[in-house]
Design a protein around this nucleic acid. Structure first.
Lengths: 351, 351
DNA sequence: CTGAAAGCGCTTACAG
DNA sequence: CTGAAAGCGCTTACAG
């Protein structure tokens, strides 16, 4: 069957040293009162090459060492069949940076049900501990597990801003506040003053940030905002009737959180014999992922997913190195995308 | 740092038994000459409940000799920026099945350069050994590493048929021979007899299989094939002039290996004021990945990527279990896709 | 029916 | 500068 993989002791014997020395060489522990002669190190390295030895990460972990493994944990499948475009760029960035810093990636696929749903603690045990640290990705189901994980002192970084009651998690987020304010300001510059906000009914950190950015833009520009303009509705509730009501009230532009609202707006435009952006403007507070007609280039901003993934790895490795205390909350800027779904307000020359 | 969790010995003490008994109860090892009295079992179970004990999986793995890690190795980046659609379904299948069999996935990202290029042996050391076994994916650069890996006895499965000089690798491939023959037979049924084959200039196992299927279909149907119909050309060489020559020689249908040839054919059709499939038919020996106009539904077949990924995991775990000697070469069928790029040959009623 | 012991493959003080 | 030893938390023969 499969040839027995070489163990540390095999290397030690071949090199004529003790297992401890092999371990020392392997981990580059030359600091402090440990010093290995160049010859010994070479002999050990040669033996490792000759035998094709690789340290068993499980044993390493049990013994309390580091295994240069970075975990990736998601509550849903890490390779979802639906909306793969959402996750994928994060993974690209994570891989790039993991390669750069010389870590392997551990995907926690063992702890899930067939539906792809997982949890960090399974029967109270945290399988994340297998890797030196972990990157968490995507929508969490409950904050409780995050709290517990943080309390345990397990090193992890969330991709996306996440706040918990008890303290400050490490995360790499996108600056939705500034990006959203930028979109609203862009509409201001086009002469729009009555700008509705169509949000989703669930509020998440990222939705909260957009909300803040929306109101902040009004405040900074010194324009008043009608509280009625701000709405959180579920998919079904965003009907043509609702949108018509907005238009009747004088709303000339919409900023939306989700593609479903974009669709509702185009649906309404069709129903009402209106056209976007001639009759009203639409901007998305994010990037256009779903397969829209090519003629539509959604005005909005891109979320720097790839950079977020890469930055999360950098942050995590710095936490693991532990020699500096890095800022544990990083916000990355989004890039404004002009698109063609907004236009200068009718009858307004200049703002 | 990490909160102290109860260990097996704590349970043993509380229950007044030995650690071994706790382990026995935990693993339900009641078979053979092991028997635990109902009282003892209850006492152990009570202690477990009282302490909230959960066995440490890392220690468990170490004692069991396996680490329940499955490696994924690719020569290029595992999350490529280009043509992600190609790899992704494999990963979906791998994840699904890894979850089903309770393995975690290890992505070898540490051994590569910044360009994403990797090799199995780095300074003669094979990091693959970190996991119990590995799944290899994508284009290999050289067979030498595969030969060495096989010789070492390291358990791995290739996704895609791969043959090496010295012996039989384990792989899960797609049956391109049958699928290609099926496409050619479909064209036969539409009355086509002069069917050209546009292949790429590099020959790979998957290209060889298509080639075999092409000639096999002719042979089985009893039709003669003009050797000139079969061409391996690089992207640039597939010019309108070449295609016009085929048409002049009476070719009425093309089967192609790659999207670039599809593009060349559409280009030629435009140049020659001909239309597909009215004037000639086109079928791809694979699935349409690139973003073609929606009106074009390429005739061809789908490669069962997701199933291949899942099957590769199954095959690998069976090899690791080692209690049976599974067939180490698996070929999965492709599904014919009718599409709308082929049509009945002009002037032919029935084949 | 259950305990004592060895071992899984490492790392890390502790000696020298 | 390096070795011998203990220990990480389990499992599995081996005794009794």
């Amino acid at each position: 069957m499969m040839k027995q993989r070489p163990r540390q002791i095999d290397v030690a014997r071949l090199a004529g040293v003790s297992p401890a020395t092999v371990s020392l060489v392997l981990n580059g522990r030359t600091g402090g009162n440990v010093r290995i002669s160049l010859q010994t190190r070479e002999r050990v390295l040669d033996a490792i090459r000759e035998l094709g030895y690789v340290a068993n990460p499980v044993a390493r972990n049990l013994a309390g060492g580091q295994n240069r493994l970075l975990g990736i944990f998601t509550y849903e499948a890490i390779f979802p069949i639906q909306n793969q475009d959402f996750y994928y760029p994060f993974l690209v960035g994570i891989e790039e940076e993991a390669t750069a810093v010389g870590y392997d990636l551990l995907l926690y696929t063992s702890t899930g049900g067939p539906d792809g749903r997982r949890s960090i603690y399974h029967d109270g045990i945290n399988r994340l501990g297998l890797a030196d640290g972990a990157i968490l990705l995507g929508q969490e189901r409950e904050k409780g597990e995050l709290v517990q994980l943080a309390e345990e002192g397990y090193p992890f970084v969330f991709v996306g801003r996440r706040e918990i009651p008890g303290g400050a998690l490490a995360y790499v987020g996108a600056d939705y506040v500034t990006a959203t304010a930028g979109v609203v300001e862009h509409l201001f510059a086009l002469g729009h003053r009555s700008i509705a906000y169509l949000g989703m009914d669930i509020t998440h950190e990222s939705a909260q940030d957009r909300e803040v950015g929306y109101f902040q833009a009004f405040q900074q520009a010194g324009f008043t905002v009608d509280p009625e303009w701000f709405q959180r509705l579920d998919r079904q509730a965003t009907t043509t009737a609702i949108i018509e009501e907005f238009l009747c009230r004088g709303v000339t532009a919409f900023v939306v959180e989700h593609d479903s609202a974009v669709q509702a707006l185009y649906q309404a435009a069709g129903d009402l014999k209106l056209s976007i952006p001639i009759d009203f403007s639409v901007a998305k507070l994010g990037d256009a992922l779903s397969g829209a007609p090519l003629s539509i280039e959604m005005t909005g901003f891109t979320i720097p997913r790839r950079e977020m993934g890469a930055e999360a790895v950098r942050l995590l490795t710095r936490i693991l190195d532990g020699n500096d205390l890095p800022t544990r909350q990083v916000m990355l800027p989004c890039r404004f995308v002009p698109g063609n779904t907004v236009a200068r307000m009718k009858g307004v020359r200049n703002a």
